[in-house]
C-alpha cells in the first residue's frame, strides 16, 4: 500500500508538473488575449516531434533547446500573420482559427511522421535509476523532468513579478488599452507572449515526449485537459494553474493506481451493494480520464472564475 502511495504521488506530481508546463503558456495567452488557443497542445506535440527529428542529427541536449525555439518562432509567425488578422472579427473567429490550426498541425504531423509512435527516447545515461524504492527504480530522467518544470515555474514567476517586461505583461492583462496609450507596443507584446507560450508548450513536449509516447494523437489526448487546467485554475492566475495541474495530476494518477470500484467504496461506507453491478462495478481507474471534465463542469457551474482567478471567462 505504501509503495502505491509513494509512487502514485511521485508520478502524479510529475504528470501535474508536465501539465503545468503546458498550461502556464496557455494561461498567459488566454488572459492577455482572451483566446483559448485550441492549437496549444499541437505546439506541444510539435515540440516533441521537432526534438525527435533534430535529435537524430544533433543529439538530445542541443535539441532540447533548439526545438522550443523553433516552435516559438512558428508561434510568432502564427500570431503575426494569422491570429492578428482574425482578431478584428472577435473572439469566436479567433477560437475557430486556432481550432482549424490544430486540425492542420495534427494532420501535417500525420503526413510527415506517419500515424505510429516514433522512437523518441531519453539518452541512455538518463534512463539509469535515480533511486530504488520497494524494488522499483525511479529513473534519473523523471527527476530531471521534475527539476526542469520547477525551474521553469520559478523563472516564470521571476519574469512576471520582478522584471520590467513582466510588469508590462501584467499591466496588459487587465488594462491593455492603457498600456498601449502609454506608448508600449501592445501587439508586439502579444506576439511575444504568444510565441513564449508556444515555446513553453514545446518545452513540455520535448521533455514529456519520451515519458508519454510521441505519436500524432498526443495533442488530442492532452489538449482538453490543458483547457481544464486553465479554466479551473482561473484566468491569468499562474498559481491557480499550478494548483489545478497538480490536483488533476494527482487525482488521475491515484484513480488509476487504486484497484477499487464504486461498489467497494460504497460497501466501505456501510452500504450493502453488489460490487459487480453495472454501475457499482465501475472501477475508479476507468473514471480517471473523466475526472478533469467533471471538475471543469463543476467549477464552471459553481465557481466560474476558477480557483484563483479574479475574472470570469
Amino acid at each position: 500500500m505504501l509503495e502505491v502511495i509513494v509512487f502514485s504521488t511521485l508520478n502524479g506530481l510529475l504528470y501535474g508538473l508536465l501539465l503545468f508546463m503546458l498550461s502556464s503558456g496557455l494561461t498567459l495567452i488566454f488572459s492577455m488575449m482572451g483566446v483559448l488557443n485550441f492549437a496549444h497542445a499541437s505546439f506541444y506535440m510539435l515540440g516533441a516531434y521537432f526534438a525527435y527529428a533534430l535529435g537524430l542529427h544533433i543529439g538530445f541536449w542541443p535539441a532540447l533547446f533548439l526545438a522550443p525555439l523553433l516552435v516559438a518562432v512558428l508561434g510568432a509567425v502564427v500570431e503575426r500573420f494569422g491570429l492578428r488578422r482574425v482578431h478584428e472579427n472577435g473572439h469566436v473567429a479567433e477560437l475557430l482559427f486556432t481550432f482549424g490550426l490544430a486540425y492542420v498541425i495534427d494532420e501535417t504531423v500525420h503526413l510527415l511522421w506517419g500515424s505510429i509512435p516514433v522512437s523518441y527516447s531519453a539518452p541512455e545515461a538518463l534512463r539509469a535509476p535515480l533511486f530504488s524504492l520497494f524494488g522499483t527504480d525511479y529513473s534519473i530522467y523523471r527527476g530531471v523532468t521534475m527539476m526542469i518544470a520547477i525551474l521553469m515555474f520559478v523563472a516564470l514567476w521571476f519574469l512576471l513579478k520582478k522584471t520590467r517586461v513582466g510588469l508590462m505583461i501584467r499591466a496588459a492583462l487587465t488594462h491593455g488599452a492603457m498600456v498601449g496609450h502609454l506608448g508600449h507596443n501592445v501587439p508586439r507584446l502579444f506576439m511575444g507572449v504568444f510565441a513564449f507560450g508556444c515555446g513553453l508548450a514545446a518545452l513540455a513536449g520535448v521533455i514529456g515526449g519520451p515519458l508519454l509516447s510521441t505519436e500524432p494523437g498526443m495533442a488530442q489526448s492532452l489538449g482538453p485537459v490543458v483547457f481544464v487546467v486553465v479554466v479551473v485554475g482561473g484566468m491569468g492566475s499562474l498559481l491557480g494553474a499550478f494548483y489545478a495541474s497538480l490536483l488533476i495530476g494527482l487525482v488521475q494518477t491515484f484513480f488509476v493506481a487504486l484497484d477499487v470500484s464504486i461498489g467497494d467504496l460504497l460497501n466501505g461506507l456501510g452500504f450493502a451493494v453488489d460490487p459487480y453491478g453495472e454501475v457499482t462495478g465501475i472501477t475508479l481507474a476507468s473514471i480517471a480520464p473523466m475526472t478533469p471534465f467533471i471538475l471543469l463542469v463543476l467549477i464552471l457551474i459553481f465557481r466560474p472564475r476558477g480557483l484563483m482567478g479574479e475574472l470570469e471567462p
Binding site: 482572451g34 483559448l36 473572439h91 477560437l95 482538453p224 483547457f227 481544464v228 479554466v231 453495472e278 465501475i282 476507468s286 473514471i287 480520464p289 473523466m290 471534465f293 467533471i294 471543469l296 463542469v297 464552471l300 457551474i301 466560474p304 470570469e312 471567462p313
Partner: peptide, 27 residues
C-alpha cells in the same frame, strides 16, 4: 448562464465527459 468562452468550455467538458462515460456502460 453565459455565452462565449465559458459556454464553449463547459460544452467541451460535457462532450468529453459523455464520450468517456459512454465507455463505462456497455449495455
Amino acid at each position: 448562464r453565459r455565452a462565449g468562452t465559458a459556454f464553449a468550455m463547459i460544452t467541451l467538458g460535457l462532450g468529453e465527459l459523455v464520450a468517456a462515460g459512454s465507455q463505462m456502460f456497455p449495455t
